[in-house]
Amino acid sequence: MESDELYPPERLAAARRATVAAGLDALLLTPGADLRYLTGYQARAGERLTCLVLPAEGEPTLIVPALERPAAEASPAPATGVRIVDHADGTDPYPLVAAALGGPVGTVGLADRMWAEQVLALRAALPGAQQRLAGEVLRELRIRKSPAEVAALAEAGAAIDAVHRRMGEWLRPGRTEAEVAADIAAAIREAGHVTVDFVIVAAGPNGASPHHDTSDRPIGAGEPVVVDIGGTMSSGYRSDCTRTYVSGGPAPTEFNDYYAVLAEAQRAAVAAVRPGVSAEAVDATARDVITGAGYGSAFLHRTGHGIGLDGHEEPYVVAGNARPLEPGMAFSIEPGIYLAGRHGARIEDIVVCTTDGVQRLNITSTELIAL
């Protein structure tokens, strides 16, 4: 996929228009998904300042450490029309931000996850400027994925599906969660990801903790095992998929009963996705099935989160989010049931809202997988 398809120059113009509409004079973006979304540059986060200065009027400037200028110039950023300015070690880079703004500014939007030391340094360098969050502007641009972005997410989904299909090579009784996770991490890279973002292998009672990592606990025969894995592709777009397995013997009857409920809830929530349906209605679809079966208190988290250049981004599929879904919105559908001290289960697919319904980007079976 060509970089100008995934990171088109028109994004800077769209961001500038949105900056004006939001009543901001400029956006100041340090390394992260927003900077990459606008320029294609995967900048290194560190104590040396990297900052995209996007004035509402005027030339966009990418300020980088001198030693990282070659990387910035080799990225898609120059093709988007940004001017690159560098600073040497030992010099103060913050006056370069003020210079790139071209004059006094009243209000600037800062990257939502900018380091506090940079926020405070910019406050000192631009003493007359109010600070707001750039997410107010960029959230609306990023929430609807372009066809090229959907293709990148589909590529990521296929890569993580390929890892799940290999689970029988690694997951078996007697091996520890950590041993299985090490094999999975290697396979995530082999499948085309450039980084491994997370590997959750949660067997038996550990499966009742949704964000369990791994441990040195051996996997027992017949224990349910929740495997939640994801990584980042060279495109910058992410994968995230959860399946639940059982190895070496039959799962407990109680588990089989509620897994059937969970699978029904997940299928129903995926099927509910279409333009105009609210995010909270999709959450309610999954939650109503689980609650109706008596497991409502065991569904501990929201039904889903958006995904793209960030692993978690808008839209969030959760009670209280009345925003209607629109074509191009990409997010997870991942209900779970967790019984403390016993076991748990989660099923997660990434889906995209289309013009007339939904597209699953993870297509492996959602049935309980016996290895």
Rank of each mutant, 00 (worst) to 15 (best):
T107K: 13
V119M: 08
P93G: 02
A111Y: 04
D112Y: 08
L120N: 09
W115H: 06
Q118A: 06
V105M: 14
P104E: 15
L101V: 07
P104G: 05
V108A: 13
L101P: 00
P93M: 01
A99H: 10
A116I: 14
G103W: 14
Y94D: 03
D92F: 07
P95I: 07
L110R: 02
G103T: 13
T91V: 06
A99P: 04
T91G: 01
G90W: 02
T107M: 10
Q118S: 06
L96E: 01
P93D: 00
W115Y: 12
T107F: 09
T107S: 10
V108N: 08
V105K: 09
R123N: 04
V108G: 07
R113V: 08
L96M: 05
L110T: 06
P104Q: 10
G106F: 15
G102T: 10
V108H: 08
D92M: 05
P104A: 15
Q118W: 05
A99C: 08
L101E: 02
D112V: 12
Q118F: 07
D92P: 02
A116F: 15
A100H: 03
A99Y: 08
A111P: 01
Y94K: 01
A98L: 11
T91I: 05
A116T: 12
A98Q: 12
L110C: 09
G106V: 14
E117H: 13
R123K: 13
G106D: 14
A121L: 02
L120W: 15
A99E: 15
M114L: 10
V119E: 11
G106C: 13
V97C: 05
E117R: 11
P95H: 05
A99F: 09
W115I: 00
G109K: 02
R123F: 03
A111N: 10
R113C: 03
A99W: 08
G106R: 15
T91C: 02
T107H: 09
G103C: 14
V108D: 06
L101C: 09
D89P: 08
V97S: 02
R123T: 12
G90I: 03
